[in-house]
Design a protein around this nucleic acid. Structure first.
Lengths: 154, 154
DNA sequence: GTACAACTTGAAGTTGACTTCAAGTCAAGA
DNA sequence: TCTTGACTTGAAGTCAACTTCAAGTTGTAC
């Protein structure tokens, strides 16, 4: 139990599986040194990084976005309070947006209860383009825009 | 423009792509008759079914769940108001749950802003097991429970 | 009758975030 | 030194919900 951790210790402490840690390392989200035998050794500071990753995942960021966010944090220093405030604020916006979208959807549902029309023209539920308006690239919680309206060339 | 529609007409009117319609038919969510040449012809009533599917997808149901929901609607009759009320109520619960989960996550974020600890032990954000508590099988909007804690056998 | 867009099929590809596998290597306690 | 659990790798598999492809067929407007 030195100041570095094996992969399974890191897994246990971070809550990620060992295979996820290997994957994150491959993807460049975390970093590990090696023993001369080639086994990974994680610095304790990686646990902080992993906590950040876990939080970001819970907020709904993709690994790609997380990687980007991490790259904005000075590599080896502990993020400052300012860093953290900036990031958590953007996450909050994201969550707010998601919540608002869901609320609009719910309200649409309410307006449909007892109506049951499900008209493709009229129903706000089956036709929620105006409800869940252009979510841009940000949304993660909503079930995907029913797949891109891809123009088939057939 | 008879009382049946070709696949591309159905696609245009429903908003689904033709390939999605084929897929849904294969999966048993919708039904189509055939010309003697083998081309699909969709009854107009399928548009209603497709509207239902679109709505359910927006609420976040999987196709599997939608199939189940559809199977509870008497096959060929138009769903009654009671049918619809029952279903939309369950969808509303679902949305309410999702919204509550997101709000709890956001509140956790708030409690972290300005703290910046991200301690694996203390931070509610990186450790939201108590925040986003057992979402059961129902949740669709949240980014997945960070993958099942799968015990690797290695 | 002919052209050509629209349609058909089964199979394979896509995406993200991992997991699983096989086959082999390392580390540490007895 | 031996054993054995922990570790390594690259490659392939998984999931859902489709999309894309290739190669061939149908329907219809002219």
């Amino acid at each position: 139990m030195e100041d570095v951790l094996t992969i399974s210790e890191t897994a246990a402490r971070s809550g990620f599986s060992a295979s996820a840690l290997r994957y994150y390392e491959r993807e460049g989200l975390i970093d590990a040194s090696r023993t001369q035998g080639g086994q990974r050794r994680f610095r304790r500071s990686e646990l902080r990084r992993l906590a950040f990753i876990a939080a970001a995942r819970h907020v709904g960021l993709t690994l790609e976005e997380i990687k980007e966010a991490l790259s904005l944090l000075p590599a080896e220093r502990t993020p400052t309070k300012a860093d953290w405030t900036r990031i958590s604020r953007s996450w909050r916006h994201r969550l707010d947006d998601e919540i608002r979208a869901l609320e609009r959807l719910r309200d649409g549902l309410d307006s449909c209860i007892g109506c049951g029309c499900l008209s493709l023209q009229r129903c706000r539920l089956s036709n929620p383009n105006d409800i869940v308006a252009d979510r841009g690239s940000g949304a993660v919680f909503l079930p995907k825009p029913l797949h891109p309206p891809s123009v088939e060339h057939q």
